[in-house]
Design a protein around this nucleic acid. Sequence first.
DNA 1: TGCTGGCACTCCTGGAGACAGAGTGCCAGT
DNA 2: ACTGGCACTCTGTCTCCAGGAGTGCCAGCA
Lengths: 340, 340
Amino acid sequence: MSLDDRKLEVLRAIVEDYVETQEPVGSKSLVERHQLGVSPATVRNDMAVLEEEGYIRQPHTSAGRVPTDAGYRLFVDRLSRVKPLSPAERRAIERFLIGAVDLDDVVHRTVRLLAQLTRQVAVVQYPSLARSSVRHLELVPISTTRIMLVMIADTGRVEQRLVELPAPATPDDVMELRRKANEKLAGQRLSDTPPLVASLVDECAPDRRGTMACLASVLLETLVERSEERLMLAGTANLTRGGVLDFQGTLRPVLEALEEEVILLKLIGDLEPSKTRVRIGDENEIDNLRSTSVVSTGYGPGATIVGGLGVLGPTRMDYPGTIATVRAVARYVGDLLAQN
Amino acid sequence: MSLDDRKLEVLRAIVEDYVETQEPVGSKSLVERHQLGVSPATVRNDMAVLEEEGYIRQPHTSAGRVPTDAGYRLFVDRLSRVKPLSPAERRAIERFLIGAVDLDDVVHRTVRLLAQLTRQVAVVQYPSLARSSVRHLELVPISTTRIMLVMIADTGRVEQRLVELPAPATPDDVMELRRKANEKLAGQRLSDTPPLVASLVDECAPDRRGTMACLASVLLETLVERSEERLMLAGTANLTRGGVLDFQGTLRPVLEALEEEVILLKLIGDLEPSKTRVRIGDENEIDNLRSTSVVSTGYGPGATIVGGLGVLGPTRMDYPGTIATVRAVARYVGDLLAQN
DNA sequence: TGCTGGCACTCCTGGAGACAGAGTGCCAGT
DNA sequence: ACTGGCACTCTGTCTCCAGGAGTGCCAGCA
């Protein structure tokens, strides 16, 4: 009982109409709005099959049909035509992103741009430290037992940590560590640093080795273990678009989920391939987000990926348009980072 | 036609009941729940006067009364009894805030704590740079025409800026500027730095003065003019508490306003006195927030104030409790900063 | 003068019933 | 295999009708 072409066409029409009108779509209006070349009765038969197969459902008897999560999935995988960005959108992206002075600025502009273009909630992850290389390390003594560690990554990300030393260190100690650490670590991926830091201690004069080892271990811990992901959110107001109709009842759980950085990272932080990923409704692992869809992708200079970005909205969303926008923005951001 | 004590007592009772039940309160239930010592009929007369004076109103004829913004204002100014925090709340504050390692961490914990305790939207401003002193300046050459400027303030705030130089500078130039700048600026308020930077250039050897002046001016511009306020938000999910009843219809405009940092800064950034400030409904200058109330106060180590924090919720809020919580949290945060 | 009980009035709320509209499922016909 | 027709079902909306809550006013009482 496979679906023939017309049935797929009917599904496509249902999805498109429902996304646009937000109302269950019936057989009659369907043939009126699309050139299907058949009568409503025929469409009804097709619909019955599609419902049987689980791609659409009726909110109640004698109402129109609404796509199910599976229906959207099929639509995204096989039916959606690529929707190229309008020139206006392209221009908007460029205008918005050029003139960014900072990594902070880039992320900030990007997330707002995404929210505005897709009219949904946008999330942008800062370039992941784990995927960055060390450009420079700076150690600033604050007191004898406290130093400020500033790391500048090649992605433009700058992290600072206040490091509490277990034992006092002289400024000379700190400066030596600073010099050595930069020699050893500059250009290295952050994830490769642990063995390097260890070897760094070995090269010290034996009488200073104790202090240095202690310093270095704290440094290491701070760099690697406390290296957090950061991200930025925008467009939560877009959740209220379409009234309380989306998000079955309340958008409370959605807002709650959006407050948890861990959750957001899970959503956009699957950076394996450079493909755009779409999670629809129940495909989300987070219970609070079962009524939403997430479109996410990785970005980075050239082919490497350093972070993720994406948008979140109701399952009833314009998938082709959203996917196109997310991809385009990710590419522009990548280019921007590459120039740096 | 001034209000006698009993009328004020009636107003207080109305506010308290309405805040609790979220339903218009009538004369009968009022005398049942409060020991007013008079009959419902008398209370009705008082209510008529209170309505006349604009402190309460009826949603419709023959419904109970609801406080107006003016009513809440009077309540806050003259009627609310101080509500001391419960021991549980005090403990929650302490437990939440000790163990913060970072300024970032402090702000992060604080904003979540505030949101959780007040069950409203919380906003915490980072210590304002304008009110901070320079502890240390670090200049890291990235290339000949780019340096990374890192400023560490006494409040623990760390800012970095990528500075684009108009002309190439040697590492020696940069190091000299770094040394001189630290000598001159350490311990100074950021707002006092401009003349100091100018004098700094004068002390340079004449042949380097050109480069240095150029460097210094960029430095100055970056430090002072691009010094932005930062802040953190939490608890937006709390806006959905109480259904769509609060926020006349939609909370859309509220969410929109909360996305604008400028607006948030206006809300909590009036740091003149160390008094807690309450803005009720229409008292807010932002149109989108006319149906909300904001309780804000300044915080800082000791008596000085370096930043603001506060919460935002429906005008129908527990003012005494919220005020007490905001004050207490601000004091704890101030103490925490003072220890640093 | 100030408080109280009583009473008529207003208005919201919720349930019941009626009706139009939209959409379906099925069946017989082409 | 598709189509037109028809009966059926369900929703949404409207109206109507009580029930209830609360008020405003008035006359009586301390």
